[in-house]
Design a protein around this nucleic acid. Structure first.
Lengths: 188, 188
DNA sequence: ACACTCATGTCAGTAACTGACATCGAAGGG
DNA sequence: CCCTTCGATGTCAGTTACTGACATGAGTGT
C-alpha cells in the first residue's frame, strides 16, 4: 500500500464533477475540489493543467481511437465514410461510459468556458482525423473538409444523444445524421 | 470635445493587437495594453469582459449578417444554400477588413486560448444560423446540421484564405469548398 | 543502514478579474 | 453664471487561477 490514497487524478475528477454539478463550475474553487479529494491545490495542478482540464482527461484516448479507426478503414472507403466510422467508434466509447458522459455533458452545457475547451478538443480531433486521412492518400484540402464535416456530424449526433433519454447508441445518431447530410448536400 | 481621448475601446484593440503581435499573447499583460492605450486596467475590463475578448468585438455584427442573409435567401433556396450565402456574406465583410483580419488571425493562430474563444464565437454563429433556418421553416434537426456543416465550410475556407497570399475573396474559397463538399457527400 | 526516488506539501509570487467608491469635466436648467 | 446631474474614468482592496522553488517523508533497492 502506498503512502497516499491511490488514484489522486481519479478522485479529483470525481470530486470536481460532483461539485460542478451541485454548485456550478464558477462557484467551485480548485481549493474546494482538492479538499474534497484529500489533496492540496498544488497537487490538483500537477495532474491537470488548469481547472477546466479536469473534465477533459480522455482526449488522448479519443484521438487515438479516431486515428486508428481511420487507418483501419478499407482503402475502398471514401474519406467521409472513414470519418463517419471514426466518430461512430468514439460514440461506442462514450456508450460504455454513458452515465459519466451525460453528467459531464450537463456540466459543460452550463458553462461557456467549458464549452470553449470542449470545442478546442473537438478541433484537435478534427486535426488528427485530417492527418489520418492524408496518411491514407487523401489530398490536404479534401482531408480537412472531410474531417471538419465529420465533426459537424459528431456535434449534432452527440447533441441529440444527450437530449434524448433513450438508450440508443450514439453511433445510431451518427448514421442518421450522415443520411441527412447526404440529402442536404444533394440539394446544393 | 470630451474630457478624454475618444474611442477608448478602439485604442485598446489596436494596442492589444500590436502587443500580441510583437511579444505574444501570454507575454502581454492587460496592464500593458491599458497603458499603451492611455487608460487604466480597470477601464479595459469595462470595455472587454476579459483579456481575450478584445479581439472578438465584431461578433454581434457577424451574427446579424448571418441572420439577415439567411432570412433574405429566396424561399426556393435549400438550407445549405442559404447557409453558404450567409458565410459568403461574412467573407465579404472580412474582405473589407483584409489587413486587420489577417493580423488578427495570425495572433489567434499562435495561442490556444484565443483559438478556444474563436471556436466559441463560431459556435454562436452556428446557433444563430440554425435559428434563422428554423424561422424559414426548416426542421430543427435539418437546421442544426446545415448550420454546423456551414461552419465546417467556413473554417476550411477561412483557413485557405489565411494561408494564401493572393487577393481572392473568401467567398471564392467558400464556393470551392461547397463544391468539394458536394463531391464528398455524394460518395457517402 | 543508506541513498535515492517520487508523489505530495508548503509558501511566496504574478496576473486576471470584480465590487465599491471617488473624481471631475461636460451639459443642461434655472 | 452657478448648480446639479451624469457618465466615463480612476483608485483600491480583495479573490482566485496558476507557477516556481524548495522541503518532506514513506517506499525501494543495494
Amino acid at each position: 500500500m502506498g503512502r497516499w490514497e491511490p488514484d489522486a487524478a481519479g478522485r479529483l475528477l470525481e470530486a470536481a464533477l460532483e461539485l460542478f454539478s451541485e454548485r456550478g463550475y464558477e462557484q467551485t474553487t480548485v481549493a474546494d475540489i482538492a479538499q474534497k479529494a484529500g489533496v492540496t491545490e498544488r497537487t490538483f495542478f500537477r495532474y491537470y493543467a488548469d481547472k477546466r482540464e479536469v473534465l477533459f482527461g480522455g482526449g488522448t484516448e479519443l484521438e487515438a481511437t479516431v486515428v486508428a479507426s481511420i487507418a483501419a478503414a478499407p482503402s475502398s472507403a471514401a474519406p467521409l465514410e472513414a470519418v463517419v466510422a471514426a466518430i461512430s467508434a468514439i460514440g461506442l466509447l462514450l456508450d460504455e461510459r454513458r452515465e459519466f458522459a451525460r453528467r459531464r455533458a450537463a456540466v459543460i452545457a452550463s458553462n461557456a468556458s467549458l464549452q470553449e475547451r470542449e470545442l478546442l478538443k473537438l478541433a484537435a480531433l478534427s486535426t488528427a482525423a485530417s492527418s489520418a486521412l492524408r496518411d491514407r492518400g487523401a489530398g490536404a484540402a479534401e482531408a480537412a473538409l472531410a474531417a471538419e464535416t465529420g465533426m459537424a456530424l459528431f456535434k449534432v449526433s452527440f447533441e441529440r444523444w444527450v437530449a434524448s433519454p433513450s438508450a440508443r447508441s450514439i453511433a445510431d445518431y451518427v448514421k442518421e445524421a450522415a443520411r441527412e447530410l447526404t440529402a442536404l448536400a444533394a440539394k446544393l
